[in-house]
Design a protein around this nucleic acid. Structure first.
Lengths: 233, 233
DNA sequence: CAAAATATTATGTGCATACATAATACAATA
DNA sequence: TATTGTATTATGTATGCACATAATATTTTG
């Protein structure tokens, strides 16, 4: 029953992928059960299981107990994208990064911010606005609110030295995040900061992060025109 | 040595997460090895391994052979985002989806398209431009090129009936993809199609997909103003 | 005949064991 | 002393077995 003894889960995965790519198994098709595949490949069921789980995680297979495993109808659904630290992102492109803090204050947040975090709008938060540069060109305008009751230690940090995001990411466990991406026309203020003209299309990321159920920070990132976010599947 | 016998990999994972969230283990800290954790939790090493691997996949832990396991310095790096089929995306928001094909032709592609796919710019490809509506409002303008030598069958498909993307996704195994997101000012043509005004900020997705090493399709998706792409970590 | 009870089946998980592999620490050698 | 070789160690993986669980198929029952 053996092909040529495929006995690592990686090779099982590769072989199953091959059959999908070469359309031996078509989208929507049922594929043999784990026991039969194990026999065919000459390996243990656990090994097949590991491979199939990996492929299911990637969205290439769909599995249900008793019902069995089938080739996913729409294989490419999930893309993983990396949320970079701005400094590293700039440096990876071979640029020189620096940033300057435009504002740093402890004030009561607007209702829109407080409510999105599920916090009272009467408690002061840290408000940081800063501009990131790549090779001395404006790259990113960042408008951030930080929950001081969760990360009080940030008060003692020199944010001119280290970017708030980078500090947070290294000093606070962040377990949950909520991100949205959109396009916006640059406001007059944004245009001035990013050295472009009002109305230019700007790529915007809005991100809120929690540690467990406690909100940590909310930030709006407005990238200079021309920015592209890239990922592979 | 047992806490209260944590003997499923899910509960091991939850317990380790708890210790990270509550800062019993700090970012950068080494954590005990699998054998010791297994003893402590009263379960098998394989169970701990499963849990730790899952946490490493999520980016919360960093593991290296011999070196051991440590809490990741920058835990949130990877977000997974779903690439939806437009019809489903519209319908999930409670809207009614329809689309209309603006152009369908078999022509030689421009060099920019052919080169990005690694194809000759002398071979004809299928060019489809279409407009997707949500509740009869323009939602998305799609400009697509399809590699006919890979998916010849698409010639016989009535693309008024089924969206090209949906058809491709269900009839072609897509194993690799390349996606970029950006913001652009609406051109005059786009503005007319999307019923907005020239210069409005438009969210744009450029996507190229392959089956194995064979390019299948390249598409530019221009969303009507106000569109947001959302994901959680 | 329809609804409820029961059997069957494929995946999901846990365990003990064994060995593989990468990375480090440490000793031996030129 | 610098380099090479060797032992150690933590994770990575494969196996066989057992049982759990969800979903379907089948049979029983009203």
């Amino acid at each position: 029953m053996t092909v040529t003894d495929i006995n690592s889960w990686q090779s099982v995965k590769a072989e199953v992928m091959r059959r999908i790519i070469e359309r031996i198994w078509l989208p929507g098709d049922m594929i043999p059960n784990e026991i039969d595949l194990a026999k065919e490949f000459g390996c243990a069921r656990a090994t097949v299981n590991r491979a199939m789980r990996a492929l299911a995680d990637e969205g290439l297979l769909e599995r249900r107990r008793k019902a069995g495993t089938r080739v996913a109808l729409n294989p490419i659904r999930k893309a993983t994208l990396e949320i970079p630290i701005t400094r590293l992102e700039v440096e990876q492109r071979g640029g020189t990064w620096r940033h300057s803090v435009l504002e740093r204050s402890e004030v009561v947040p607007p209702v829109s911010v407080a409510s999105r975090l599920g916090l009272s709008d009467k408690i002061e938060m840290l408000h940081v606005r800063s501009l990131h540069y790549a090779d001395n060109h404006p790259f990113l305008y960042e408008d951030r609110w930080v929950n001081l009751s969760e990360v009080a230690a940030i008060c003692d940090v020199d944010l001119q030295e280290i970017d708030a995001n980078e500090w947070l990411v290294q000093n606070t466990p962040l377990t949950k995040g909520d991100i949205s991406f959109s396009a916006a026309n640059a406001t007059k203020q944004e245009a001035e900061l990013l050295q472009t003209s009002e109305g230019e299309a700007i790529f915007v990321i809005d991100r809120t992060t929690w540690n467990g159920d406690v909100p940590v920070t909310i930030v709006r990132l407005a990238y200079a025109p021309g920015y592209r976010m890239h990922t592979e599947i």
